[in-house]
């Protein structure tokens, strides 16, 4: 397997030495470690593999009461075909992409601006506003759904991309994280840029943001994943199927999904795909990002 050749990404500086030393005492112990890790990983993959297997069967082979078979007795793309004929899966995918992209871009822009403002300027009310935003870290958005639904429908944003996206943009935690990072960026570069006559926005864009590349990327990726997987808010605000995001559409629209398991699992596999691809592309940033939560 090609995966085996990957070097451990997070190995510390003396990783090479450690491995060498470990090799010296390759023992029954480490064989057991490898074997059990491998078996556990397989167990962990079972649900996904089973979904994939079911999705590639004919509906008859996939239905209940059939013998469990991991390899489809007859390979079939029936499930996927019906799904594409229905078409709504594609609409939800587009909606999810649009909403998550709006959320990600707006979150990045608003939070980077705000973080920079708090980090580099003193202005009337600064302490108060910052404290208020920090307090927001503790407010559970799920407990606000009732009034929030009311506000968004009053603004006539029900069943619109903006109604889906805007409330998700308010992420105090991201402001907090970015501000802390900006605080640590040395001033020297900015001063140099300012001497060259660059304005504040220009400094932010061409000095601070590039210097903060990894953290801005991490905030962006996590915002995107969080928004893509958000269920409760779109469940409330997208009433028409044509405005639903993927998780909500899959969970709520009945038409046939309950009855046909191959189709059902095809929908699950296709629903899993976009983020699995995102994960493959940004694995390093995601793993580091999660690790950062604990290490900071």
């Amino acid at each position: 397997m090609t995966t085996m050749q990957e070097r451990p990404r997070t190995a510390d500086s003396d990783g090479g030495r450690t491995i060498k030393r470990n090799r010296r005492r390759i023992t029954a112990g480490s064989a057991i470690v490898y074997a059990s890790a491998f078996v556990l990983a397989l167990v962990w993959l079972i649900p996904l593999l089973w979904a994939l297997s079911t999705s590639l069967k004919t509906e008859t082979d996939a239905s209940l009461g059939q013998e469990i078979r991991w390899i489809p007795p007859e390979w079939s793309l029936e499930g996927y075909r019906t799904l594409f004929e229905r078409g709504d899966h594609l609409v939800w995918m587009v909606n999810s992409t649009v909403v998550s992209t709006i959320v990600t871009i707006l979150t990045l822009v608003l939070c980077v601006l705000a973080a920079y403002g708090f980090s580099r300027f003193d202005f009337p009310g600064r302490k108060f506003i910052f404290a208020a935003i920090i307090a927001g870290l503790m407010v559970p958005p799920q407990a606000l759904i009732i009034p929030l639904f009311d506000i968004v429908t009053t603004l006539n944003l029900g069943d619109t991309y903006w109604g889906l996206a805007l409330p998700q943009v308010v992420a105090p935690v991201m402001v907090f994280i970015l501000k802390r990072f900006f605080d640590g960026v040395p001033r020297d570069y900015e001063e140099a840029a300012k001497l060259d006559g660059a304005g504040h926005l220009r400094v932010l864009w061409s000095v601070i943001v590039p210097l903060s590349g990894p953290i801005v990327a991490a905030v962006g990726i996590f915002t995107f994943i969080g928004s893509w997987n958000n269920f409760l808010w779109p469940l409330l605000i997208a009433t028409d199927p044509s405005m639903m995001t993927l998780p909500v559409g899959l969970g709520v629209v009945a038409g046939g999904y309950g009855l046909f398991y191959a189709q059902n699992m095809a929908a699950a596999v296709l629903g899993a795909l976009p983020l699995l691809i995102v994960f493959m592309l940004f694995q390093k940033q995601i793993v580091k990002g999660v690790a950062g939560v604990g290490l900071k």
Binding site: E59, T60, S63, L64, G65, T82, L83, E85, R86, G87, D88, H89, L90, V91, D240, P241, S242, M243, G255, G256, G258, L259, F260, Y261, Q263
Partner: peptide, 25 residues
Amino acid sequence: PGSLSRRTLLAGGAAAAGLGLSGCG
């Protein structure tokens, strides 16, 4: 759900196709 027959499948296929018309919202 339950065990399926070819006929239900066809009916379901028709249902699915019908939704497809509309699904594109």
